[in-house]
Computed example of a mutant assay.
Amino acid sequence: MRFKASIHNVATFTKLTASLNSLGPLAWVKLGEEQICFTIIPEQGTQVWAVLSVDSIFETISVQSAAHNVINLEVPLASLTRALKSALNATSATIRLTKKDGVPVLALTIVTTTSSNAYSAFPANNDNRPDASSADDSSGGSRETIVTQEIPVKVLSPDTVAGLHEPRCREPDVHIMLPPLMQLKSISDRFTKLALADAKTGSGSVASKPRLEVAANMHGCLRMSIQSDAMSISSVWTDLINPDLDPNEVDGGEAGIADHPSTRMKLLGTADGRSKEGWATVRIDGRDWGKVMSVGRLGGRVVACFCHEHALILYVYLPSEHSDDESVLTYYVSSYSA
């Protein structure tokens, strides 16, 4: 079993792992020759199924295993994120699967080049203890420093992960392209803080997990709100895009689209968002939603699919300068009952 790759997009890799770490401490990482998959399935909260093209992160990759050249790992995201942050200004960075004292580790090797009279320090921590070596350029003008960070991991057998699968959801009632996620995060965090402050004063009935109500229609409208006995606040976006369905992706093709729940919902509601009809609504944990929105730091377009009173599925399409294949992060957020 072997895995080694050179990283050409450390910044994106770091932002991705930091975003995922906010939702859960451990990730199932599936390493393949063409795709890298990150999956988080917490006991409570949002599930994430991320499928990344190899070219979006790695320049070169080698994966060898008896299981059709696929390796499954359980990876601590905080340790991986800390290691990657130390590589942000590196000249080059490689990552490989190896063993230390019989324990599987991901070894991240970072090469940096600095002026020979400059001082460079690499902070160590209890989770990632770097091994460093350095050499001066023969001209005396620069110093090359090599640091290796080791992240303990667990190798998972194919049988262990065979039963894991994405949640099954019915066809969405509404699909809509969201405004910038960092804008949504700013507003939802403000709503959540107001709800928590209201609960602490005893004037409201919001529980320790303030619940946001998020709704959308097939006329480009999105609404986010929160309420208690003492307050009711909301924000509404209009003129958003409801993407067209692809007949090749819908059972029954054109006939399937004609009978699709979103097609029926489009007959209801209005573009100004004032009508009470035609809205699909979910109720979600405000703090969990704020963590989900942190993926906005990666950029890209986001399509939200609303299954009324059941679930919200977010598809985050990441931009890539190095690959024609899109990387997609899928978030499954369950709805609370009314």
Rank of each mutant, 00 (worst) to 15 (best):
D137R: 13
G273S: 08
Q47M: 14
D137G: 07
R168C: 09
T145D: 05
S116G: 01
R211Y: 11
A255L: 14
V51D: 10
I40M: 04
F122E: 11
P158I: 08
Q227M: 07
T39N: 09
S53W: 04
I41V: 14
S138P: 14
N125P: 03
E321L: 14
P247E: 03
L108V: 12
T145G: 07
Y119F: 11
R301W: 05
I40T: 08
E34D: 11
N242W: 01
N217L: 06
G32L: 03
I226Y: 08
V236D: 04
L245I: 02
E277H: 11
K15M: 08
G202H: 12
I176E: 01
D239T: 11
S139D: 11
P158D: 11
L156P: 00
Q227H: 06
N117W: 13
L73G: 06
L23C: 06
E74A: 09
T94W: 08
I7K: 00
V111K: 15
G102H: 11
A195C: 10
D136E: 09
S139H: 06
K291F: 05
K4Y: 05
L298G: 04
V75S: 00
N69C: 10
T160W: 05
P179D: 05
T46F: 07
G141S: 07
A255Q: 07
Y119Q: 14
M231N: 06
V153Y: 02
F13C: 05
I36A: 08
I57R: 01
F122K: 15
I61K: 06
Y331Q: 13
E34I: 10
S262K: 02
I187C: 07
K30T: 14
L312S: 04
G252S: 03
L178R: 03
N72Y: 15
S6C: 06
D288R: 02
P172I: 05
G269F: 04
V328L: 13
T46K: 12
I176N: 00
D131K: 09
P210N: 05
T263Y: 06
W279F: 12
T81S: 13
W289G: 01
T148W: 09
T81D: 15
S228T: 10
R264T: 13
V153N: 03
V302Q: 03
F58L: 08
A66V: 09
G204W: 01
M231H: 15
H308F: 08
L23V: 08
F191R: 08
V70W: 03
F3S: 14
P42N: 09
S53Q: 12
S92Q: 15
I7V: 15
T238W: 02
G256T: 04
Q44W: 01
A121I: 10
D259R: 13
R283S: 06
I36G: 00
K291M: 07
G296L: 04
V70T: 15
L77H: 00
D239Q: 14
V214E: 02
S6A: 15
P243T: 07
T113K: 15
Y332M: 03
T12P: 02
V302S: 07
D239K: 06
I241G: 02
A135F: 09
E326N: 14
P261I: 05
L298A: 10
G290A: 09
L84W: 08
S157K: 14
W289C: 05
G269K: 01
P210R: 02
N72F: 08
N128R: 11
V48W: 00
P152W: 04
V328D: 04
A90N: 06
S116F: 03
G269P: 01
K100E: 15
M1H: 13
E34V: 12
H219K: 13
D246L: 07
L164P: 00
V302Y: 00
R283E: 01
L20N: 07
